[in-house]
Design a protein around this nucleic acid. Structure first.
Lengths: 125, 125
DNA sequence: ATATGTGCAAACTCTTTGCATGGAG
DNA sequence: CTCCATGCAAAGAGTTTGCACATAT
């Protein structure tokens, strides 16, 4: 009923995510994707990351300091490090154990997020 | 140089935080504070939570699904549980150990946040 | 009396939506 | 040739700011 059409813009957006190591804001995506699709507009990025998130190809990541970010859903379980200096987000590939057991009785936990804050190697002077 | 004046509006805003158990959005604060300061406007809430956060009396908490929330800075170290049904935030008073050691070499960690997602007791039907 | 604080409304930023045109199938 | 997708611009939602008036000190 709603066959997805394979446009230059969509190819460019998907390529960006396949090529990058951390979560991206729509602006990040626009900037990078314009290399392959110069006429690309921000509204198209918003529409498409939303579609890709609904289809389960991307996941939404919300970190302090800016709006929603997106990353490939296929990546293995991981968490994030936010650099307070450059505002970039990095992946952390380890996870504390038994995090979900921290909830008190009566709370049903279905997911968790761990965010570390500080300075990334590039910003540690 | 900038002596803080003690207005009815500010007393109402501070009272709200002293009386509540989790992080609040500016809208939450407005609604509750208007009981004691009926003319209170949203802009005044924004200005004052910002001042109180700068003074270190409140801390900023950013959780998915809405803008910034605020809570008393004096509370002991804790994390948060977000109910996916009612969008309310609850405090979790336990913390996984050695969280900050999860960062790779070269990252300087100065703080961390742990967020659990799921359903609160009231929303577990 | 003086200068900070407040309330309102306008400005801003980020995101979404409406509509005519472009392009995939 | 059909419709879906795009780009632009306008509309929304949330937050901040400018300004005249109110008020704490």
């Amino acid at each position: 009923m709603h066959p997805q059409r394979d446009t230059r813009q969509r190819r460019a957006i998907r390529a960006v995510f396949l090529d990058v190591a951390g979560p991206l804001t729509p602006d990040d995506v626009l900037e990078r994707a314009q290399a392959h699709a110069p006429t690309l507009g921000l509204a198209t990025v918003y529409r498409n990351v939303k579609i890709l998130a609904e289809k389960g190809w991307l996941t939404e990541v919300e970190l302090p300091g800016s709006g929603m970010r997106y990353e490939l859903a296929a990546r293995p379980h991981h968490h994030h490090f936010m650099c307070r200096a450059c505002e970039k987000a990095f992946d952390i590939h380890r996870c504390p154990e038994a995090v979900e057991d921290l909830a008190p009785e009566g709370f049903e936990v279905d997911d968790h997020e761990v965010i570390l804050f500080g300075r990334c190697p590039a910003c540690c002077t």
